[in-house]
Design a protein around this nucleic acid. Structure first.
Length: 471
RNA sequence: GGCCCGUUAGUCUAGCGGUCAGGACGUCGGCCUCUCACGCCGAAAACAUGGGUUCAAAUCCCGUACGGGUCACCA
């Protein structure tokens, strides 16, 4: 087999979508696995919707995921340019060739005429098909026109899809479709084919919403006289209601997950498992995937995007990061939340207790902001644990801590235990009021850890406030 | 509606003619325990449906139902 040349060809009309990211990932993995080439091509021919911002967002997203491209924007390559709007001459030349050979023709129908035909067909509940009005008309460049590709009337075109197996499309469901607009800008099917030919792409891996484009594209390869590449159509990613994943289902952009505090390793890991598997294994690094990924293990069924499992995967990855590095990664998230956090021992300690309890950096910030900000009390906890009965406990612990020279675990443990014994109470009766005073709530890391992280002074301040509130 | 594709627990999946249908997320129960979490142990939970083929079908074939995709001078 030739070394694969694959591509990811997004249109820059929005951020990098989860589904697009997975398509890019599968292609990238296939290329890396076989020492092939991964090409990034920007399909910006929809001038109404394409933006430079979207383009930048897509580059960002891919880079963040660790998917680098061998040919494409910024890095260049032997088949540059990699923006379709810079390749217009090429499409025109290929279209002219087809016209000269009678495989394409100029169509002078107006949009209004076409629309009327469509309406008419709809009224009669017929399938609309371009009636071939201009099929035999001579080529007159001076009149406004589009170029249409001539599709055979009979028969069918099929291929053996690397993911879905044999697929065939009858020609009578196709029509003489437009390949060049009146302004000479190509339409998707033609632009993609010409680019894939000239960029020598030999495997086209894309979402299975393109299955219905494949037969027409194969017809174009043949008309142009080039070998047809292999095709692999990846199943869609669905939302919880089993419809195509969209904004209605929540965050769908890769960068949104970055901002929520997911690790790129986790996003890659989760996405690859949505549609691909390797026995019972769940956790895969990129390096491992490059070794193991195989298109034949990609399933044919659409999958529902499950944020909870993605969070679990993220947690698994978070637990692998060494403490110091984890603190460095978490820092920007605390800062973004407006917390005056310094990179230092305190943050490392917070991260140490957070890592077992929170699945994203977003949750780190949400759950542990009290280490860096004044306590906000949970109303119920405050009512339940700040009472005339608990006040003496708070005072005793306050006094005990004030008397300690340092906040080491052993003496703290002794202090709490002694207090519990003295009062004939369980440790919980001692720890809970203290916990509320120090953290504002009833769930937190171990009490001695919290005291150590807060430090003696801050601990005493918070206990004082608790005592005051306990009346 | 036409055409194309799909269908194993709530979800992601293993399975590729003979398995007690396996794993993971989630859920529930237990252990651990100062709370929460982690960890550990355990449980409930699936082959859409009807026909074939076969000694034998989750696995192969056909129909039905359901789901998705697509029918532009969008990609």
């Amino acid at each position: 087999m030739d070394k694969p040349r694959v591509r990811f060809a997004p249109s820059p009309t929005g951020y990098l979508h989860i589904g697009g990211a997975r398509t890019a990932l599968f292609n990238w993995l296939w290329a890396r696995r076989h020492g092939g080439t991964f090409i990034l091509r920007i399909e910006d021919t929809d001038q109404g919707r394409s933006t430079k911002e979207a383009e930048a967002a897509i580059f960002d997203g891919l880079r963040w995921l660790g998917l680098d491209w061998d040919e494409g924007p910024d890095v260049g390559g032997p088949h540059a340019p990699y923006f379709q709007m810079e390749r217009l001459d090429l499409y025109e030349a290929y279209a002219e060739k087809l016209i000269a050979e009678g495989k394409a023709f100029a169509c002078y129908c107006t949009r209004e005429e076409l629309e009327a035909g469509r309406k008419h067909a709809e009224a009669e509940k017929r399938q609309y098909r371009y009636p071939g009005t201009c099929r035999e008309k001579p080529y007159d460049r001076s009149r406004p026109h589009v170029i249409r590709f001539r599709v055979p009337e009979h028969g069918a075109t099929g291929w053996d899809d690397l993911v879905k197996g044999p697929i065939s499309t009858p020609h009578d469901t196709l029509q003489d479709e437009v390949i060049l607009r009146s302004d000479r800008v190509p339409l998707y099917n033609f632009g993609a084919v010409v680019d894939d030919i000239t960029m020598k792409v030999n495997l086209v891996g894309r979402g299975d919403d393109h299955v219905n484009n494949t037969a027409r594209q194969i017809l174009m390869y043949r008309a142009l006289g080039y070998p047809v590449p292999s095709f692999a159509h990846f199943p869609m990613i669905l939302g919880a209601d089993k419809t195509r994943l969209s904004k209605r289902h929540g965050a769908t952009s890769v960068t949104a997950y970055r901002d929520m505090g997911f690790l790129p390793e986790a996003v890659v890991n989760y996405l690859v498992r949505l549609g691909w598997s390797h026995g019972d294994q769940e956790i895969f690094s990129l390096e491992e995937l490059v070794r193991l990924f195989d298109l034949k293990d990609v399933g044919a069924t659409a999958g529902v995007f499950n944020p909870e499992k993605m969070a679990w995967v993220n947690h698994e990855w978070l637990k692998k990061v060494p403490e110091e590095a984890l603190a460095a990664k978490a820092l920007p998230y605390f800062r973004a939340a407006g917390l005056a956090v310094e990179d230092g021992p305190k943050l490392r300690h917070v991260v140490r207790v957070a890592r077992e309890r929170a699945k994203t950096f977003g949750e780190y910030v949400q759950q542990f902001r009290y280490f860096f900000a004044p306590v906000t009390f949970d109303a119920k906890a405050r009512e339940k644990f700040f009472t005339k009965d608990t006040r003496p406990v708070l005072e005793a612990i306050r006094a005990g801590i004030a008397a300690l020279p340092a906040m080491d675990t052993e003496p703290l443990e002794k202090l709490f235990q002694a207090e519990a014994e003295k009062r004939g109470l369980g440790l919980g009766k001692i720890a809970q009021p203290v916990r509320v005073a120090l953290t504002g709530g009833t769930a937190s890391p171990g009490m001695y850890d919290v005291v150590q992280i807060l430090g003696k002074d801050e601990t005493l301040r918070r206990l004082d406030e608790g005592i005051r509130l306990a009346g």
